[in-house]
């Protein structure tokens, strides 16, 4: 498939995530939209890694170009898993204190 299709698909998913962060007030939904944006970037990295592989595989059948892109996706997943565990703990603590997950109650750092 042309790489442009993958770029446009990833851009659409990324912008849907941005619209979600801008339009929702539930902290958990905002967090899910951030996960959506991370996944859009992951998809684009895999598509680019296969693009570089396609360019290199013409000359050499056993080319390993593009491996780094897929390893980056792996590390992004690792960081996302760590981020989700800490973030959800913060949201649970916030719910325990103010009995709501509405981010507009968090517009001041004090009190």
């Amino acid at each position: 498939m042309p790489i442009q299709y993958y770029i446009i698909l990833s851009l659409a998913l990324f912008c849907i995530g941005i619209v979600g962060v801008l339009t929702r007030r539930n902290a958990i939904i905002i967090f899910m939209c951030i996960e959506l944006m991370l996944n859009a970037v992951n998809l684009l990295l895999v598509a680019f890694s296969k693009m570089h592989y396609a360019a290199a595989a013409v000359a050499n059948k056993a080319a390993t170009e593009g491996t780094e892109g897929q390893l980056f996706v792996f590390f992004i997943m690792v960081v996302a898993a760590a981020e989700v565990s800490v973030g959800l703990a913060i949201i649970v603590m916030m719910y325990r204190n103010i009995h709501s997950v509405d981010v507009s109650f968090l517009n001041r750092l004090k009190n």
Binding site: M1, K50, M51, A54, T64
Partner: peptide
């Protein structure tokens, strides 16, 4: 003109 290689290639 660039394309992503589908279905084959063993880097993944």
């Amino acid at each position: 003109t660039k394309t992503a290689r589908m279905k084959d290639g063993d880097i993944g």
